[in-house]
C-alpha cells in the first residue's frame, strides 16, 4: 500500500513517514502541491495525506485539481486548522476524511487503513480486517486460513460490518441489510445473528457491542 504525504513541515512529515512505514505502508513525501502533482503523474498511490496549509498551491486547491483531473484515490486531510468552514470545505471538495493535528500515530494508521480498505472494497474483491477475510463476489469467509460457513443473513450482517470496519454500525442499519429477505424482522433478530456470528467466527474476530447503538467490527480481537 503506497501513501504519498504532502506536508511542508519536515518534523511532522518525518514523523508520519516513519510511523506509517513501521506499520507496513510504503510512504513517500513531498513538501508542496506542485511536487505532489509531478509525483502523481509518474506513479500511483493508494492514499494521499494532504496538509491544508501548504506554501503556494494550498491543500484545498490540490484536492480540487486532482478530482477535476479524474484522480479518485482516497484523500485524508491532515490539518492544524479546525474551523468549521475548513472541515466542510475539504469534504465538499472531494476529500474523504480529515484528521486534526496533533494526532496519535495509531489513529493516523487506523484512518489510513480504513480509507484504503473502503476504496479497495469498491473495486477489489476482498476485504481483510485483522484475522478475518471476506471474498465478496464468492461470499466466502475465512478466519486466518479456516473457512467459515455462514447463512445468507449472517453474511449480510458481517459484510455490512466489514465494509464499515472500525465504525459503529447501528442495529437499524444491520436490520435493513437483512430485511430484503425477511420482512418484519426485529432488532432482536439482529442480536441473535450477531451472537451466532460470534460463535462461528471465534475469539480472533472482534465484534463489539456498543450499548444502545449497535456493533463495531475491529481489527484486533476483544
Amino acid at each position: 500500500m503506497r501513501i504519498l504525504i504532502i506536508e511542508d513541515d519536515a518534523l511532522v512529515a518525518d514523523g508520519m513517514r516513519r510511523g506509517l512505514s513501521q506499520v507496513g505502508f510504503a510512504v513517500d513525501h513531498v513538501p508542496s502541491a506542485e511536487l505532489a502533482e509531478a509525483a502523481l503523474q509518474q506513479e500511483n498511490f493508494d492514499l494521499l495525506l494532504v496538509d491544508l496549509g501548504l506554501p503556494g498551491v494550498d491543500g484545498f486547491e490540490l484536492v480540487r485539481r486532482l478530482r477535476r483531473g479524474g484522480k479518485s484515490m482516497p484523500v485524508l486531510i491532515v490539518t492544524a486548522r479546525d474551523a468549521l468552514a475548513d472541515r466542510v470545505g475539504a469534504l465538499d471538495l472531494g476529500a474523504d476524511d480529515y484528521l486534526v493535528k496533533p494526532f496519535a500515530l495509531p489513529e493516523l494508521a487506523a484512518r489510513c487503513r480504513a480509507l484504503i480498505r473502503r476504496s479497495k472494497s469498491n473495486s477489489d474483491s476482498g476485504i481483510s480486517i485483522g484475522a478475518l477475510h471476506l471474498d465478496i463476489p464468492r461470499r466466502e469467509t475465512r478466519v486466518q486460513s479456516r473457512a467459515v460457513d455462514l447463512t445468507r443473513r449472517e453474511w449480510a450482517i458481517l459484510e455490512c460490518l466489514a465494509l464499515h470496519a472500525g465504525q459503529v454500525v447501528s442495529k437499524d442499519r444491520l436490520q435493513q441489510a437483512i430485511s430484503s429477505w425477511d420482512e418484519g424482522i426485529t432488532t432482536n433478530a439482529v442480536e441473535v445473528y450477531i451472537s451466532r456470528l460470534r460463535g462461528k467466527l471465534g475469539d480472533e474476530v472482534g465484534i463489539r457491542t456498543v450499548r444502545g447503538l449497535g456493533y463495531r467490527l475491529d481489527e484486533s480481537p476483544a
Binding site: 465504525q167 459503529v168 456498543v210 450499548r211 444502545g212 447503538l213
Partner: peptide, 23 residues
C-alpha cells in the same frame, strides 16, 4: 449523542467502562 459514544468507544474499551447511549 450516538456520535459522541462512537467517538469515545475505544477509550471506554481501554478503561473497561461500559459506554452506551439511551436516545
Amino acid at each position: 449523542a450516538e456520535e459522541a459514544v462512537a467517538k469515545h468507544f475505544d477509550r471506554a474499551l481501554r478503561q473497561h467502562i461500559d459506554l452506551g447511549v439511551e436516545a
